[in-house]
């Protein structure tokens, strides 16, 4: 099965279309945002929302990405996981509240 086949299957199943939230734990240093955003940009995968804050003692940061859920998402997660400064990649459903809570600042 190739990517085009899976694309067709996806379109037949509207339940699975929509959005997803990615949670990345990264090393906190100047440049890591460039690495992550650049990866999504050059692979032509749109990122709709980005949040980044240091966690704990500041050695690490957490990056939240609001993305469209499509058949290329697992590939994007694999590619993000290959970045040396990305320590982990997790995927949440669109119902994750991190972006929802921010909405009042974007009224």
């Amino acid at each position: 099965m190739n990517m085009r086949d899976s694309n067709i299957n996806r379109k037949l199943n509207p339940e699975q279309s929509g959005k997803a939230v990615l949670e990345l734990t990264v090393r906190n240093h100047p440049g890591v945002m460039s690495h992550v955003c650049g990866l999504f940009a050059r692979r032509a995968f749109n990122v709709e929302g980005i949040l980044c804050m240091p966690v704990g003692d500041g050695a690490q940061s957490r990056i939240w990405l609001l993305v469209r859920e499509d058949e290329r998402l697992p590939q994007m997660m694999s590619q993000a996981g290959k970045l040396e400064d990305v320590l982990s990649v997790a995927r949440h459903g669109a119902d994750h509240r991190v972006f929802e809570k921010l909405e009042e600042f974007f009224g």
């Binding site: 099965m1 190739n2 990517m3 086949d5 697992p74 590939q75 694999s78 590619q79 290959k82």
Partner: peptide
Amino acid sequence: AELGKIKR
């Protein structure tokens, strides 16, 4: 990341 990138 190459496994399934082009052909599953």
